[in-house]
């Protein structure tokens, strides 16, 4: 079970981190568009399409990575007060009835959606540049598959926690500044904050 969790974590992280670099491409691509559009007066026909394809791919492919780091927002003001075993029991049930149906639909219905797009090699209707979007629609399936595998790992985490009474967290990775700083200062005293990731 441990091995599987580690495998899923690194699979999700590998994909998440690889696709994360799209942000750099996106920054440079959009900046290039700004330059040719406002300085040279000849905008590209592809910048708009490319920016949403990169944004959409980025966040979809990051879904599983974020899940493995417990980074999806939870309404956890009660949850965080519970003992780990209770957390694990509740999570386990909710993963089974809440998580897998939707993620399975991403894979299967997403497949039907994407395969149709492949059948006529669909391009974006946003510009005449003919930027392909069939591969972009396939991202739905890929994201679903990654989430499915990571979801199984999260279920394993719940089972392990039920047995041992404590959570198996993901291996060290980049952290938000506040998480890092708080962790460094935790030795100094009791803090009511879990190390869950938090957002802007």
């Amino acid at each position: 079970m441990m091995a599987f969790i580690r495998f899923a974590d690194s699979l999700s992280a590998w994909f998440g981190k690889s696709f994360a670099w799209l942000i750099l491409l996106m920054t440079l691509g959009t900046s290039y568009e700004v330059f040719v559009r406002y300085v040279l007066g000849s905008p590209t026909p592809w910048a708009l399409d490319l920016s949403f394809i990169m944004y959409g791919t980025l966040f979809m492919m990051g879904g599983a990575y974020t899940l493995s780091r417990d980074g999806h927002v939870r309404g956890d003001f009660l949850y965080r007060l519970w003992p780990a075993r209770v957390q694990a029991a509740v999570d386990l049930v909710l993963y089974l009835i809440f998580f897998f149906p939707g993620v399975t639909a991403l894979v299967f219905t997403g497949w039907k959606y994407a395969i149709r797009s492949w059948s006529y090699l669909e391009v974006s209707a946003n510009s005449p540049a003919g930027i392909p979007i069939f591969q972009f629609k396939t991202v739905i399936v890929a994201a679903g598959l990654l989430l499915f595998v990571q979801g199984l790992a999260q279920v394993c985490r719940c089972l392990l926690c039920l047995r041992s009474g404590s959570w198996l967290t993901a291996e060290d990775d980049v952290e938000e500044t506040e998480t890092l700083l708080m962790r460094q200062h935790q030795v100094q005293g009791q803090t009511p904050v879990s190390t869950g990731e938090h957002r802007p």
């Binding site: 998440g16 981190k17 696709f19 994360a20 670099w21 942000i23 750099l24 944004y55 980025l58 966040f59 979809m60 492919m61 990051g62 879904g63 990575y65 974020t66 780091r69 980074g71 999806h72 927002v73 990775d173 980049v174 938000e176 990731e197 957002r199 802007p200």
Partner: peptide
């Protein structure tokens, strides 16, 4: 880069 993808995904 990595934090960007995590927060965007969230």
């Amino acid at each position: 880069v990595y934090l960007t993808i995590r927060t965007t995904a969230m």
